[in-house]
Computed example of a mutant assay.
Amino acid sequence: MPYTKICINLNPFSFDFNLLKPHIALLSEWGFYFMAKKRVSIKDIAKALGVSITTVSFIINGKAREQRISDEVTQKVKKYIKEVGYKPSHIAQSLRLGKSKIIVFMAEDISNQFFASIARFIEERAYKSGYKIIYCSTDNNFEKAKELISTFKRRNVDGFIITPTPNIEESIHDLIEEEFPVVLFDRWLPEVNCSYVIVENKESAYEATQHLIEEGCKNLAFVTVESDQTQMMDRSSGFTEAVKESDVNAFEFRLKFHNLSEVGPYEELLDFFKSKKEIDGVFFATNYLAFEGLQALDTLQRSIPHDVKVVSFDDHYFFNLYKPKITAIEQPLELLSEKLMETMLSHLDELNLGYSPVRLVLPNKLNKRESTEN
């Protein structure tokens, strides 16, 4: 086709739209559109024509005859695809060209023991299934996460396992629209219809708080971070519910989110415990808060468990080395990793059937140790 350059002045006050008519067919043939439109998916085509997603997928991938799909249905689908300007998605291309066999694992901080352990288990399962894992940290930063997702999409990876950051909903939604398999973990997004594998945050926080109360604590503190993410909100909710059911006093102390390499919470916790000398039980919402909180309590010479009893969410090998040993909620890391990969591999095996979200909530274990003993 010879090259034609078309320059059009689209000033609405001076442009004569009749001048555009001779070029409409040419522009349409080249695939240009004058109005922004939502990307058409295989699911949209199937719904519009009243056929199954599988039927549309077979036709797109040239398998209509092999699957004994009638010529009438085949032509109807092909005609509609041309009319709506459907372009093969990442998945359709993968079906024809082969998979990259690479899965992205996006964690909040890959150096954190929790995320590192999950990554190690996932890598082992992925390798056995013929996949490789790319690791990266978002630092719970939306802009960084968005940029990473964009980069890996261009690299044509097969799927994403993501710890979502604040405000990442649109990027996750776009991944699903483009038919990338996505599985969230550690937290989920209420506004996005997406697969996730998480733990019982609220139930475990309730159990841990009840344990402190049963051990005689009357003035409890819940130390957490400023966050409206689901896992932190659920832990706060579990603590609050247990307190309301008992005759105890409670304080909730929130710190700004920080990376493990940053210093700051220790000083704030030191000031908090100085001002609340009556506190006799502390529940730390994360283990990294517990590390700094234990240091602050030690500085103030608050004896554990005699002066104050301590529980932490998310067990750590350090808690077994500390004197006294720290009571903590243990997340099922191996099971969590297994279910993450099981869900991801299931999505990858069923690419042509559309995205059906899987939602799994796994139980934790409260390891009772010396820090809560009488």
Rank of each mutant, 00 (worst) to 15 (best):
L175F: 12
I176M: 11
E179N: 14
F180M: 08
P181Q: 08
L184S: 04
L184E: 03
L184A: 04
F185Y: 14
F185Q: 03
R187C: 12
W188D: 06
W188R: 12
W188T: 11
L189C: 10
P190K: 14
P190M: 07
E191P: 04
N193L: 05
N193D: 15
C194E: 08
S195G: 09
S195H: 06
S195L: 09
Y196C: 03
Y196Q: 04
V197R: 02
I198Q: 03
V199K: 01
V199D: 03
E200K: 15
E200N: 14
N201D: 15
N201V: 06
N201P: 08
N201A: 11
K202I: 05
E203H: 13
E203T: 06
S204G: 12
S204A: 15
A205V: 06
E207T: 10
E207R: 01
A208E: 07
A208H: 02
H211Q: 09
L212S: 00
I213M: 08
E215P: 00
G216M: 11
C217F: 05
C217N: 05
K218P: 02
N219Q: 11
A221S: 12
F222T: 04
F222Q: 04
T224L: 10
T224H: 11
T224D: 10
V225G: 00
E226W: 07
S227M: 10
Q229C: 09
T230F: 09
Q231P: 01
M232L: 14
M232I: 14
M233F: 08
D234I: 01
S236R: 09
F239K: 06
T240C: 12
T240L: 13
A242K: 00
V243S: 04
K244W: 04
E245R: 07
E245P: 07
S246L: 08
S246E: 08
S246Q: 14
D247H: 13
D247F: 10
D247V: 06
D247K: 14
A250D: 04
A250T: 00
F251E: 09
E252K: 14
F253H: 04
R254C: 11
L255W: 07
F257E: 05
N259F: 10
N259S: 14
L260K: 15
S261I: 14
E262P: 04
V263P: 11
E268A: 07
E268Y: 10
L270P: 03
D271C: 10
F272A: 10
F273H: 07
S275Q: 15
S275H: 13
E278P: 01
I279V: 15
D280K: 00
D280P: 03
D280F: 00
G281W: 02
G281F: 00
F283A: 02
F283V: 01
F284T: 05
T286Q: 06
T286H: 10
T286I: 08
T286D: 00
N287A: 05
Y288H: 09
Y288G: 00
Y288W: 11
A290V: 09
A290L: 09
E292C: 08
L294G: 00
Q295N: 13
L297Y: 05
D298R: 14
L300H: 08
Q301H: 15
Q301I: 09
Q301G: 03
R302P: 03
R302W: 12
R302D: 07
I304L: 02
H306F: 06
H306V: 11
V308F: 03
K309I: 02
S312F: 03
F313R: 01
